[in-house]
Simulated scan of single mutants.
Amino acid sequence: MPTVHVFARDHINTDEIIPARHLTTDVEAELAKFAMEDYDKTFVRRVKPGDIIVAGADFGCGSSREHAVWALRGAGVSAVIAPNFARIYYRNSINNGFLALECDGIVEAFEDGDSAELDLQGGTVTNTRTGQALTFVPVPQFALDVQKAGGWLEYMKEQDAADLEAETLQAHSTEAGHSHPGQDSAQQEKQHA
Rank of each mutant, 00 (worst) to 15 (best):
K157V: 08
S185F: 10
E167L: 07
V137A: 13
F34G: 00
H192Q: 09
A82Q: 00
V6L: 13
V54C: 14
A32C: 14
G56S: 07
E175G: 14
K33S: 11
T168P: 00
E66I: 00
E175S: 13
T25V: 08
G113I: 01
C61T: 11
A143Y: 13
D119E: 09
D51V: 00
I94L: 01
K148N: 13
R129I: 03
E167A: 15
I17S: 07
Q187A: 13
L134H: 03
E30K: 01
A109G: 10
F43P: 12
D38Y: 03
V80H: 04
A29D: 14
R73C: 09
R87W: 06
G74I: 10
E37Y: 11
E175Y: 09
L118P: 00
I106E: 02
S115C: 09
N92L: 00
N95K: 03
K190G: 03
L153T: 07
F34Q: 08
D58S: 12
D112N: 15
D40T: 04
N96Q: 13
H192F: 06
V69D: 07
G177K: 03
G50C: 09
G177H: 01
L31N: 06
H172G: 01
G74H: 04
H5M: 02
V27I: 15
D26P: 00
H67L: 03
G60F: 02
I12T: 15
L72N: 03
R129K: 10
